[in-house]
């Protein structure tokens, strides 16, 4: 059960920026009224980052991963999170078997 110094540094830095985002709003009250296109751009940050992180696996690994990603996306707005994951994981296992 060891803690690597670089891992510790990464976790502490991640924790620091996360806490700053959490408390920043307290000091920005009344000064942060985004609207229109600026608001749309700000709202798009979380999905844009999440998609960017997984795009290499989903689109640039192989056809089983790509098809499984589309299968998960097809059910994602209707099913709960864990069910969406189950569909994606089961699809990739089956498709990888087909791909040999």
């Amino acid at each position: 059960m060891s803690i690597d110094p670089t891992t510790l540094a990464a976790i502490l830095a991640m924790a620091a920026v996360t806490y700053l985002t959490r408390i920043a709003g307290i000091f920005l009250v009344g000064r942060l009224a985004l609207s229109g296109r600026a608001k749309a751009a700000f709202d798009a940050i979380p999905p844009a980052v999440l998609v960017s992180v997984i795009a290499p696996t989903a689109l640039a690994t192989g056809w089983p991963e790509t098809l499984a990603a589309f299968a998960a996306a097809a059910v994602a707005t209707r099913l709960p999170l864990l069910a969406t994951m189950a569909v994606g994981v089961a699809s990739v296992v089956l498709l990888r078997m087909l791909a040999g």
Partner: peptide
């Protein structure tokens, strides 16, 4: 692949139609 599937599920939580479709496709 659980990450990828999990993230797809999380992204769906931010879905708001045309604007999010543009963001997701471009990303």
């Amino acid at each position: 692949f659980a990450f990828t599937a999990l993230f797809i599920g999380l992204v769906a939580g931010f879905w708001n139609g045309r604007v999010s479709a543009a963001a997701i496709g471009a990303s």
